[in-house]
Design a protein around this nucleic acid. Structure first.
Lengths: 335, 335
DNA sequence: ATGAAAGCGCTAACAA
DNA sequence: TTGTTAGCGCTTTCAT
């Protein structure tokens, strides 16, 4: 194996000089730098990660804690992971994969052995049992999601409240006065992930603000349930001309249900989805996207910032972005 | 930070004794072992991974090299990853995530810095440019897939040839005499991944062997394309009573297409899918499964074996397993 | 701008 | 069965 001593000898300098050329932690004369770089290239030298970690107490590795359990939307997860890994690499860090099933136990082990300098934790719930642990660990962490109390943490999430509001604003601007909200399965609202509730809250508040009548209903993922919910919405609000859908699995049934009830999209009922962009694109639905790449990148950048001792806000909310498509079409203002 | 010296002092033994208790590399008296274990627990000691790696030249980390590019079937990938990670953990190893976009460059870096002891490389193509590199690296590797030459490597893959043949045999045993094959998008056959070709080859050879007429067509992932392909198959072989589908994304459209063409499953046309079991289960399709978990587990086990100096076969082919479901139903022998 | 040398925490000979 | 000790390869003070 080629060591730093070999390089130093070959370049006719001290090992420390080689180290400083590599880390850039002190100024080196251009000649020396070139000479050392050349020796490194010639000998094919790669610093030993373990030795480096030991001497500098910096592993240059971050843990990515992933759910990998049923129910997560994998395409989104993957885009997120890719963005996170790419960003980490841009900062010369590697990524250790820790699956959530390893639990708090796993976090403790990885942290204790100084294998990683920090944690990127996905899929954090309102009352996540890992949060107390993360607070007291030596290594900093960034959480994707929004636990109940964010004080002392660094959390990143989509601004779901704004997302709900954005849908209403878009529809209101188009002249709609009666808007329905088709939500996630009711079990999601029971499970305290929060994002579903926040979206609805944002939707409701925006509707109130704009003086718009709104009704909301949860729905399961099958056709019958969607049809039933849409029918209920129309019954309680016969003048409904727009629908906001926050349920990826139900999206496929919405148009069909509306048609079965005699309504066409977008002429009779406009539809806005809150879902990954690719899905909306495919179905030509106006949508508010879940910015997976942006989330992954941002989260990793925040983690790197914390690793470098920079302070970060406890909560970063990414603004929703609405993409207009065929399912909402400008219409004349109605009474 | 708690070090091995702290533990040794607390337990009244030498540091090496603590080390040996941890690694089990020499016999320790039960009393000492208990005493040391107790001190470890009490002090909350975790060995420093970097120090360990440096002293033992073993990182206890393996690299998982993943595609994460468009076109891979994510649910399968995830099950594979989960199985691989779980298996690694069972051997006290951690997993470093290396995305394929980091390329050969990334492999070299990770290998050179002794960050990992070995590589688990997914999605290996017939003429993969990483293969030469993997051959000459100090660390052993296990490849998922089947490069052109496996000599000197350790490769694991599903026996796709046998999978194609198994479908034919199942259908032939049920009395079918005209069988169609609905393949992956044509781009997959152009990209030299091999598995698609091998499945078709196995299918074709088995059909010949059993004296059965067969026709094969690629198909894209959308309804129109599937409908078109099925129509073509029926046109060129009007007596076709069975269909083998090797295209996960197309599966959802197959039954619909057949129905649109006046055929019902399984009464008029029996269907066998080559796809993950969960998908087949959900759609009640007879299927040959892609054993993602088994593949991930097996691959990691082989890697661990190699890390421990055990020899391994250059190519391990997992036998296909067919699960009979509603889409193929015993029928009388036809003319 | 560079060198010398003391560790970082652990493992694995070598001794006893 | 256990202890002693010399590194593993690197970073980082302290010196010059």
């Amino acid at each position: 194996m080629v060591t730093i001593a070999d390089v130093a000898r070959h370049a006719g300098v001290a090992p420390s000089t080689v180290s400083y050329v590599l880390t850039g932690k002190r100024s080196i004369s251009p000649q020396t730098r070139t000479k050392v770089r050349e020796s490194i290239r010639l000998l094919g030298y790669h610093p030993h990660a373990g030795a480096r970690a030991l001497a500098s107490s910096r592993a240059n590795v971050v843990a990515l804690v992933l759910p990998l359990r049923p129910g997560v939307h994998l395409p989104v997860l993957m885009r997120f992971v890719t963005a996170a890994v790419t960003t980490a690499r841009r900062h010369d860090m590697d990524v250790l994969l820790v699956t959530a099933d390893q639990g708090a136990q796993g976090l403790r082990r990885v942290a204790g052995s100084a294998q990683v300098d920090g944690f990127l934790v996905m899929d954090v719930e309102l009352d996540d049992d890992r949060v107390p642990l993360l607070r007291q660990m030596a290594q900093p962490s960034v959480l994707i999601g929004r636990p109940a109390a964010v004080k002392g943490l660094t959390c990143v999430d989509l601004d779901f409240e704004a997302a709900g509001a954005r849908c209403v604003d878009h529809l209101a601007d188009l002249g709609h006065r009666y808007i329905g909200f088709l939500g996630a399965p009711s079990v999601v609202y029971q499970r305290n992930t929060g994002y579903a509730q926040r979206t609805m809250a944002g939707f409701g508040a925006a509707a109130m603000r704009r003086g718009i009548a709104s009704t909301a209903l949860p729905t399961e993922d099958d056709y019958e349930s969607v049809l039933g919910s849409v029918r209920s919405l129309l019954r309680s609000q016969p003048g409904m001309t727009a629908l906001v859908v926050h349920n990826e699995a139900a999206l496929g049934w919405v148009a069909g249900s509306l048609r079965a009830l005699g309504r066409r999209v977008p002429d009779d009922v406009a539809v806005v989805a809150i879902c990954p962009d690719e899905l909306a694109e495919q179905m030509q639905l106006t949508s508010v996207q879940l910015p997976a790449e942006e989330l992954g990148r941002q989260a990793m950048e925040l983690l790197v910032a914390r690793l470098n001792g920079h302070p970060t806000a406890p909560l970063t909310l990414l603004p929703p972005k609405l993409s207009g498509r065929a399912s909402t079409t400008p219409r004349l203002r109605r009474a």
